[in-house]
């Protein structure tokens, strides 16, 4: 099949960038979206042109590296998956596909479809941990935890830090990302000890970095490839009020 690709090309963080159009033939419906881009890149290299830069690694939807904005959807028009799991089967012969990098003040474009998500790491560094030194842990079963809470904590912890929530949010807010970590640690007994300091520090850093505010639109939840729920944001809010 043949597709028309409108891909955002931007040399580096300082340049302006614009769409480039590629009519790309020979796309197989069995390809994943990223494999289609690989094939395009092979073609570009062979023609002596510069390949499209994009982040990717595990190609099985768990590392959180990949992510691009396809036809108005972060990651994928099909909900619940990362870009690497998006199959070309979803598209039709002759489709025009617009591909942009994720856009947010906090996610500056590095090149083409690659963005800098180090702001996420900064939020985690602010307090996304339990202060326990190696070797200082008690026996695992000495800290029992309700199964319900352990399961919920797992659901929150399955966030892959890809940034789709920020990309989807009209405000480029990182509340879903932050709330996933806050929820995970708030639900576990071992995480309660530092709960107040954690939420204060992490919210404060998130704000300083310049993420937008939460308008409870739910776009983040709709586009999250791991199904992180908005209930996490409500819990984050509760945890925040409790911290004073």
């Amino acid at each position: 099949m043949k597709v028309r690709l409108k891909i955002w090309r931007q040399k580096n963080s300082k340049s302006k960038g614009a769409f480039a159009t590629y009519d790309f033939d020979g796309v197989s419906p069995e390809m994943s979206f990223l494999e289609m881009l690989d094939a395009l890149n092979t073609k570009l290299v062979q023609e002596g042109r510069e390949p499209v830069a994009f982040d990717h690694d595990c190609r099985e939807g768990i590392c959180g590296s990949c992510g691009m904005y396809i036809n108005g959807y972060p990651h994928s028009p099909v909900p619940g998956i990362t870009t690497c799991h998006l199959s070309m089967r979803y598209f039709n012969d002759g489709d025009t596909i617009t591909v942009e990098p994720w856009r947010a003040k906090t996610f500056p474009v590095i090149k083409d479809l690659m963005v800098d998500r180090s702001a996420f790491d900064k939020i985690q560094v602010a307090g996304g941990f339990i202060s326990v030194n190696t070797g200082a842990a008690p026996d695992s079963n000495s800290i029992p935890c309700r199964k319900k809470h352990a399961d919920e904590a797992f659901d929150s912890a399955s966030c892959i830090g890809c940034g789709a929530c920020v990309a989807a949010c009209k405000n480029a807010s990182a509340m879903l990302f932050l709330s996933a970590k806050i929820s995970q640690l708030a639900l576990l007994p071992q995480g309660r000890i530092e709960a107040k300091e954690r939420v204060r520090e992490m919210v404060s850093v998130m704000d300083e970095l310049g993420f937008g505010n939460c308008s409870n639109t739910g776009a983040c939840e709709a586009q999250c490839p791991k199904g992180i729920k908005l209930t996490n944001i409500a819990r984050l809010n509760r945890e925040y009020y409790k911290a004073f």
Partner: peptide, 22 residues
């Protein structure tokens, strides 16, 4: 054994039984 204890203390949500143990 130390590894499991350390991960649990770090907040790794390992699967649990209804009694709250791993």
């Amino acid at each position: 054994n130390d590894v499991i204890d350390h991960y649990t203390a770090q907040g790794v949500p390992f699967a649990r039984d209804y009694g709250g143990t791993l």
